[in-house]
């Protein structure tokens, strides 16, 4: 028996968050205001995602938490421990074993299935905020479906750089209605958002919750002559050899040496366990491969 109420939050707070989540599901891409609570962690560490997860978790759930694809970074480990302590639920690092996955800025490489919930941590939920700082104005722009400003921004990218230079938090249009910030996931992940799992987004400091139901149309904004390009580093993974995954660049010495590795640690480890090898895999394996 934990000394905390199940999943930390009090029941009235959870009801309020649950009502906001359901409105988000009913109006995909619309940012529902909610009375975000102070959490025992600073803003910017996933307080929005944690509140959404707390409102969703059942005692039978298995939770996975990733930070930029990794299960073993400070943010992921501390949120996982938080729910182990306050909800006494099972945790895992395996994508397919998890029923609830809280993520900071990545979608797992393995396709998600029905019955899973993906909870995103969102810093700035308003895609128009850097173009128009006034909440009264952006709210009106969403109400009138007035998204010309966003296309001007993408056009200016092309005028300045020759291509759309936005590489993360790439704006999407949900079900032909609301322009939505997919949170700072790399644009490589945008096409995965049309998925079988329920996607929930929580912004704690900004007090917004929004959602994308399963099989919902999510289109990355682009132009006919500059179509959306979900690009990634043009290398295979140096540990597992995968050519279809999103990669992190890691500096490995002070002479400019670098390596590229899968950002999804669980996916990469599983591929290595299956025998896939990359350029910098441990030497005994390379020798074996050479024999």
């Amino acid at each position: 028996m934990s000394d905390y109420n199940f999943a930390y939050l009090d029941e009235q707070t959870k009801r309020m968050i649950r009502r906001a989540i359901l409105k988000g599901i009913a109006v995909p891409g619309y940012q529902v205001p909610f009375a975000s609570r102070e959490m025992p962690m600073p803003y910017g560490w996933g307080t929005g995602g944690v509140q959404v997860s707390a409102a969703c978790l059942c005692p039978e759930d298995t939770l996975k938490v990733i930070d930029q694809g990794a299960d073993d970074t400070t943010n992921a480990v501390s949120i996982r421990k938080f729910f182990e302590k306050t909800a006494e639920i099972a945790v895992t690092e395996k994508t397919r074993e998890a029923t609830v996955i809280q993520t900071r800025h990545r979608i797992p490489e393995e396709p998600l299935t029905e019955g899973q919930i993906l909870v995103y941590q969102v810093p700035i939920p308003e895609p128009l905020r850097f173009l128009e700082p006034r909440e009264t104005e952006t709210r009106k722009m969403h109400a009138l479906e007035e998204y010309g400003l966003m296309h001007v921004k993408l056009y200016e990218d092309i005028a300045k750089h020759g291509h759309i230079a936005t590489s993360y938090a790439y704006p999407v249009k949900v079900e032909d209605r609301y322009v939505m910030d997919p949170s700072p996931i790399p644009k490589f992940d945008n096409p995965k958002m049309d998925m079988a799992a329920i996607q929930l987004f929580g912004a704690g400091r900004e007090q917004r919750i929004y959602a994308v139901p399963p099989y919902t149309k999510v289109v990355s904004l682009d132009f006919e002559d500059h179509p959306f390009d979900p690009s990634k580093a043009n290398h295979p993974c140096d540990l597992c050899g995968a050519e279809h995954t999103y990669l992190d660049e890691v500096i490995i010495d002070d002479e400019g040496g670098r390596m590229f590795v899968c950002s999804d640690t669980d996916y990469c480890a599983e591929r290595q366990a299956e025998g896939h090898r990359g350029r910098l895999s441990p030497s005994e394996n390379i020798e074996k491969a050479a024999e």
Partner: peptide
């Protein structure tokens, strides 16, 4: 807490 979570 548990029953409401399952119901939700």
């Amino acid at each position: 807490p548990q029953d409401a979570a399952r119901a939700f």
